[in-house]
Each structure stands twice: as C-alpha cells, then as structure tokens.
Computed example of a mutant assay.
Amino acid sequence: MPRHYPDSNQRPIGRGLLEGVRCERGAPYASAGRPRGPMMARSVMRYVRHRITRHPDTDVTFEAECLHCKWAATPSTDGVAVDVECMSHTGRSGHKGFRRLCTSFAIVVRDE
C-alpha cells in the first residue's frame, strides 16, 4: 500500500536499519551543477578511549543538612570539619539524621 506524503517534495529513500523515511528537498541538482547521487558519508568515525577524572583546578566540597530541621553545615573542603558540625548539631538538638553531599567537578580526557 503506498504511503501518503503531504509535501510533494518528500519521498522515501533507501532502506536503513530502521526503514525510516528521509526528506529530500530542493532542486534535483546540487549547487555545483552535478546531479545528486546516493548520500555518502562525509565524516570519519574514530574510536578513542577516554577517562573521567577530577578537574585539577577544583577541590572537593563537603556539605551536610539535617533531615529533621532546616539546619545545614557550612560547606568546606575538609570533610571531617563538616562531620564535627553534624555531631555538634546532634548534641544540641538530638537530631540524628543528615544528608551528606560531596561535590566535585570532573573532566573527560583522552586515555593515553
């Protein structure tokens, strides 16, 4: 059964893995005056191994916030200092649950 294409410039071209329909528009000749032929790849695919690592110009930041009230520890690059603040808050309020956050910035580099 033929498919209906509402735009007269659209037509099915080739059969790919998904058997999709590609839209071809414009004059039948390319800008250089040559007839259009089958579509050809204009890029080269290379596979290079990469790895992700901590960004060298940044530090890891530690934070914590209480699960029972709106208290939050002062963000710091020292994780132990944040843990001490949480224990002090527990001693003052009796709240024992905290959400701890460790934030770092990463960069992807070629694995050489």
Rank of each mutant, 00 (worst) to 15 (best):
G20A: 05
G14R: 05
L101R: 12
A27L: 03
V60C: 09
A30D: 15
S31Q: 14
D83G: 05
E63R: 06
F105V: 04
P35H: 10
R42E: 05
P12Q: 01
H50R: 15
F98W: 09
R51Y: 06
G94H: 07
E85I: 10
R22W: 10
P28C: 08
Y29C: 15
R99Y: 14
P38L: 08
D59E: 09
R22Q: 12
G97I: 15
H4S: 15
E24L: 11
L67K: 14
G91K: 12
A72L: 00
A32V: 03
H89Q: 13
G16Q: 05
T61C: 00
R99F: 03
R15F: 09
C66E: 11
N9Y: 02
R36C: 12
M40H: 05
F98T: 02
T58M: 01
T74E: 03
D78C: 12
I13D: 06
H50M: 15
P38Q: 14
R100G: 03
D59Y: 04
F62D: 12
G79V: 02
D7V: 00
T74C: 06
D83L: 10
K96E: 03
P2C: 13
T61W: 04
F62M: 07
R22F: 03
C102M: 07
A32L: 00
L18I: 10
P2S: 09
E65C: 11
Q10W: 12
C66Y: 04
P75C: 13
R34L: 15
C69Y: 08
E24G: 13
R34N: 13
R54Q: 15
V21A: 04
S31A: 13
P6I: 13
R49M: 10
V108T: 11
G14F: 08
S8K: 15
G33N: 10
D7I: 06
E85C: 09
D78E: 01
G91P: 08
V80L: 06
M45F: 02
H89T: 13
S43F: 05
F105R: 07
R49P: 06
T90Y: 04
T74L: 02
C102D: 03
E63P: 03
R25C: 02
A32H: 15
V82K: 01
S93L: 01
Y47G: 04
Y5M: 13
I52G: 00
A72K: 01
S88F: 11
D111E: 13
H89G: 02
G37K: 11
E112Y: 14
R25F: 08
R11H: 09
N9L: 04
Y5G: 08
G79K: 05
G79H: 01
I52M: 01
V44C: 10
P35A: 03
A27T: 10
V82A: 08
R42T: 03
T58K: 04
R42V: 01
G26L: 00
C23I: 02
V60H: 00
T61L: 08
S76Q: 13
V21M: 06
G37R: 07
P38A: 05
A81I: 04
Y5P: 03
T103P: 00
H50Q: 14
T90G: 10
M40L: 13
V80F: 00
C66N: 02
R54P: 14
R15Y: 09
G33V: 11
D83H: 05
K70H: 03
E63W: 13
G94S: 12
L101E: 06
S76P: 12
T77R: 11
R15C: 08
P35R: 12
R15K: 14
A41P: 13
R3V: 15
I107S: 00
D59P: 04
S31Y: 04
G97A: 06
E65M: 07
